[in-house]
Write a protein that binds this DNA or RNA. Structure first.
Lengths: 335, 335
DNA sequence: TAGAGGTGCTTAAACGTTTAAGCATACTTT
DNA sequence: AAAGTATGCTTAAACGTTTAAGCACCTCTA
């Protein structure tokens, strides 16, 4: 790599100090009373030499790296990939660059990725917290880092967050199924103490209770650590063992897709033998033999709000903002 | 944010020079003849103060940022998302961090993202080049940057690259269809002068010629700029207007998925009325009413090879490495 | 006993910015 | 004519590392 062109080179060329060059190239020539002629000369030489400021030096000196650390569960998961895309675009608009990491829902990986982000001195964090990462978040908070939690949060941690109103989403789905005449509804969720799952369960449970279907409540907890095949088997067994089940709600995207494999293999008629409600949307939902009714999250809004909020904090905002955004419910053939 | 702990703090604490601290903490205490006792003390204080080196300062001084710029077409596309995941993991293993950008196949966005990468002084680039970005790559090459092209390349540019052996992949697919008794095979590709598309077309055309089916050759070029709906419409019209068509090959992932929507809407029986071969795999392929026969790319191998090659170049390798990796052909119900 | 060599440390510059402080010089004002 | 102020620039330190060069001091060898 050829030697970088630095302010020093421009300064030398014009026999002036680097201070002057800095003033002009950061657009503070008026404030710093640089003569118009000199400003022009500096800009010209900068252009001629194809000068590019070193973000590195700027960051070292100024403290800000204009970098955001984004910790997701898995970037290969379409839900997070889309979110990442939106966040990157939004961040780029504001001059920020995004470092992405995938925790795979492991607290260990989460810790190690957060450490990397710290080493890189990111200005702020957007985090989809995994189970068991509460202490990590707390430790970041103690050090006064800018943080926005995404998709999930810890109720006893006073952080900004952006997520879905999970209760409402599932409550509407449950109500819809009941109105359609289903009442033996089973819900598949990930075994998780995290708020979103809890809220989704609550949305289901309370709605069932409210319509006097308490005795029909059935929540199946699928361990996240299961392989795809094990999850599929658990779903199949559940549906086979209780033939009264006439509807299922899958509490998230990957469970929905795995669930579809299970139902497909069981050869169940949808929605006659079983109605299905999925989560987050996917092309798969369109191609399943009964196009799926599903809950859609407002991805764009979630992405933009999280970046906005984070940059707000980075720039000094102290107010804690907690967004619970509204879902969209798409009714199609599976219910 | 609390003030950072720097080497200076450690040095002050022990009344020594920062040089000594640096020698110890970068593990060169022997080489630099630091006494064992002193080394121990320094390590202890570093730990007590929870010292974290500043990558920023290190980079500024040393030149290397331990950062890779990864330019994709679109991170929200599952193919690229999976690739990104593999590349990140592989890079992380070697101490590198990855900056990701999505060009949307636009040369302008590509230029602007590459500029961002340059500003951030990435040590190397992994690039899925878009049409019209040849000059950008050339300009990077002139400045002696470490570059690996991914998925595509420019034949007259002497860069390292990692991609699929596209010719073989489509040749096998074509042969398979013909063996199954299809001979009016149409291929849908993106309008693109890029090598991979050209090679895929060549794989189809030469195979057809080789089996005396020259007059049946039909390649439909879909403009990338079309909306999803326009693409779908073009595919539908093609299949409706020529009722002799008995098989289709979709030359990439997104065309396959859009094509499936089209075929689904036309209500064609698969493979009786039309056989289908898809590209890259997707859960959708499993749920289509005839699970799809498709060409799979060796994602993991592609990802790892590209990182390996790039880091090789960063570390001084001058040899140009060009990989054309082998596909896997999955035969299922659609053909 | 002088020189060679080893040991354990320090000094100071360098990477490329930003920025507070200061210094001439010229022009106004009273 | 002295004081004030505006103009246009420079100086030098700072951010947190790395590293070449050098300085004492000690021990060995011939």
């Amino acid at each position: 790599m050829r030697k970088r062109v630095s302010m020093k080179d421009i300064a030398k060329e014009l026999q002036v100090s680097t201070a002057l060059v800095s003033y002009v190239l950061t657009g503070r020539e008026n404030e710093k009373r640089v003569s118009i002629e000199m400003a022009e000369k500096i800009r010209k030489v900068a252009k001629d030499l194809n000068y590019k400021p070193s973000q590195l030096a700027r960051s070292l000196r100024g403290g800000a790296t204009m970098t955001i650390g984004l910790l997701l569960a898995d970037i290969a998961n379409p839900f997070f990939a889309s979110l990442a895309r939106i966040i990157e675009d939004e961040a780029a608009k504001r001059g920020y660059v995004v470092l992405i990491g995938s925790s795979d829902e492991s607290a260990e990986k989460s810790a190690s990725l957060l450490d990397t982000f710290i080493d890189r001195q990111v200005d702020g964090f957007i985090i989809v917290p995994t189970e068991g990462s509460k202490e990590q978040i707390e430790s970041l908070m103690e050090k006064n880092n800018a943080i926005v939690l995404l998709d999930r949060y810890f109720p006893d941690l006073n952080t900004s967050h952006v997520c879905l109103n999970n209760y409402n989403a599932i409550a509407e789905a449950t109500t819809h199924l009941i109105q359609k005449g289903h009442n033996k509804i089973v819900m598949f969720v990930y075994q998780s103490s995290q708020i979103p799952m809890q809220e989704r369960v609550r949305g289901y449970v309370e709605t069932m209770k409210g319509l006097n279907l308490e005795r029909n409540i059935k929540v199946v907890e699928v361990p996240y650590s299961f392989t795809k095949l094990e999850k599929e088997r658990l779903i199949k067994m559940t549906l086979q063992n209780d033939i009264n089940i006439d509807a299922v709600i899958f509490a998230n995207n990957s469970l929905t897709i795995i669930g579809l494999y299970a139902i497909y293999q069981l050869g169940l008629k949808v929605p006659e033998e079983i109605a299905i409600i999925g989560f987050d949307g996917s092309e798969v939902f369109d191609f399943f033999y009964a196009p799926l009714t599903y809950v859609e999250q407002p991805l764009v809004e979630i992405g933009i709000k999280s970046v906005e909020t984070l940059i707000g904090i980075i720039e000094g905002a102290t107010e804690i903002k907690q967004f619970e955004l509204a879902h969209t419910f798409h009714i199609r053939n599976s219910s």
